[in-house]
Computed example of a mutant assay.
Amino acid sequence: MKRTRTVIVAALASSLLVLTACGGGSEATGATASPSSSETIVIGSANFSENVLLAEIYAQALEAQGVTVERKLDLGSREDLVPQLQDGSIDLTPEYSGALLTYFDDSTSAVSSADVYRELTEAVPEGLEVLDQSEAEDKDALVVTEETADKYNLFSISDLKDVAGQLTLGGPPEWKTRDDGVKGLKRVYGLDFGRFKTLDAGGTRTVASLKNGSIDAADIFTTDPNIATEGWVVLPDPNNLFAAQNVLPLIRSDKASDTVQNALYDVSNKLSTDKLTTMMVQVTMKEREPAEVAKEFLTTQGLV
């Protein structure tokens, strides 16, 4: 007898139609002429498409306010980016609240959006700061195919405990050591997967591997439209291994001028999970350039 599983569809049917449908940008907050500015910001991004998209949104919003922006995109993982922020190689990067908090404080037990953000503001080391977080959230998720869920009677991550040894888990290389990755799955759920296959951060290699069956479970972001289009199952996380993951800017404190903070606040104020998911449909399914999709979003929101 089948119980009901939680399958994230996240209103993607309407998202697949047109990006501007979620725009709602009649409130033109940034459509006036841009002020001149001598500021320069170097924006870095992680090596997955959503983070590149977010970096482009930040970059174009800042440029609209007269800030000179240098882009260093697709640099690597958080473990690569934070040191570059600290040594001044880059000034700003899009981040995710819960994962960033765990990076700075792996003993945290914060789960809710408010608690995670409060602790994060205290955990960020001197010289760096996080600006206002957005409503938009994108979590890591443990995803399996419907066939795998049926075969092993999987309804949450907990159900993997007795079968994980027979399965191959796929994810980015940093997941092998992160507390919200392989280590956390073992600590929180007692999972010992038979094999870990190093792939990318929820990107094309991970998606292809889950499709072709070379892995049985994957770390895929919840805004990925492939989840809905492929009918994959997002296994619920009853023990809250994956905390709130609100999108927010991580910036060098000496670069957080009023102009920069105001521009990025306006972005965070307009960015929602639905809008981010819709944009990711355009980037991943429609294969549009992140810069083009970013410009369209900012235009519909009245920010450029």
Rank of each mutant, 00 (worst) to 15 (best):
Ala291Thr: 12
Glu146Cys: 04
Thr29Ala: 15
Arg187Ala: 15
Ala256Pro: 13
Ser109Pro: 01
Asp87Tyr: 00
Asp150Tyr: 07
Lys197Trp: 02
Ser112Asp: 13
Ala244Arg: 02
Ser77Thr: 09
Asn246Pro: 10
Ser109His: 11
Ala110Val: 12
Ala110Thr: 13
Ile90Ser: 04
Ser15Thr: 04
Ile43Met: 06
Thr284Ala: 00
Leu85Cys: 11
Asn153Trp: 00
Leu142Thr: 11
Pro94Ile: 09
Glu296Phe: 00
Ser45Met: 08
Thr223Pro: 02
Phe193Trp: 02
Ile41Cys: 03
Ala64Trp: 00
Leu154Ala: 09
Glu50Pro: 00
Asn262Ala: 13
Thr121Tyr: 02
Phe196Asn: 01
Arg178Tyr: 12
Pro236Asn: 08
Asp274Gly: 10
Phe221Cys: 04
Gln261Tyr: 01
Arg195Leu: 10
Gly76Thr: 06
Leu100Cys: 11
Leu185Arg: 04
Ala263Leu: 07
Leu160Lys: 05
Lys275Asp: 05
Ser36Arg: 13
Leu101Ala: 03
Ala46Gln: 14
Ala294Val: 03
Val143Ile: 14
Leu73Ile: 11
Gly302Ser: 05
Val293Met: 01
Gly88Lys: 07
Ala149Arg: 03
Pro172Asp: 12
Thr20Tyr: 09
Lys275Glu: 04
Leu17Ile: 09
Met280Thr: 08
Asp105Asn: 15
Asp274Gln: 15
Ala114Glu: 13
Asp192Tyr: 05
Pro172Tyr: 07
Ser77Ile: 02
Gly181Ala: 04
Ala294Phe: 02
Arg252Trp: 04
Gln301Ile: 09
Leu53Phe: 15
Asn51Gln: 14
Lys186Val: 04
Val163Asp: 02
Ser253Pro: 05
Pro173Leu: 01
Asp219Val: 12
Leu16Phe: 15
Gln245Ala: 12
Glu135Arg: 06
Asp200Phe: 07
Ser97His: 05
Ile8Trp: 09
Val9Ala: 08
Leu303Cys: 06
Glu292Ala: 09
Ser107His: 11
Glu287Ser: 11
Asp266Ala: 14
Leu54Asp: 14
Pro290Thr: 03
Leu81Met: 14
Tyr58Lys: 05
Asn51Arg: 12
Gly231Gln: 07
Leu185Gln: 01
Lys286Leu: 05
Leu131Pro: 03
Leu303Trp: 06
Thr20Lys: 13
Glu174Tyr: 15
Lys270Phe: 01
Pro238Trp: 14
Gly76Val: 05
Ala208Val: 08
Thr284Lys: 14
Val293Lys: 03
Asp219Asn: 15
Lys275Leu: 14
Ala291His: 08
Cys22Arg: 12
Leu298Gln: 03
Asp132Ser: 13
Val182Leu: 15
Leu19Ile: 11
Asp91Ile: 06
Glu39His: 03
Asp179Gln: 07
Ile227Cys: 09
Glu63Cys: 00
Val116Cys: 04
Glu50Cys: 06
Val281Trp: 15
Pro173Thr: 08
Lys161Ser: 12
Ile251Glu: 08
Ala61Trp: 03
Phe297Met: 14
Ile43Arg: 01
Thr93Pro: 01
Asp216Cys: 06
Val9Asn: 04
Asp219Ala: 08
Val260Ile: 15
Ser109Lys: 14
Met279Phe: 04
Leu92Trp: 13
Ile215Val: 15
Lys275His: 03
Val82Leu: 11
Leu62Gly: 06
Thr148Ile: 13
Gly181Asn: 05
Trp175Gly: 01
Leu276Met: 13
Thr121Gln: 15
Glu230Asn: 12
Leu12Thr: 08
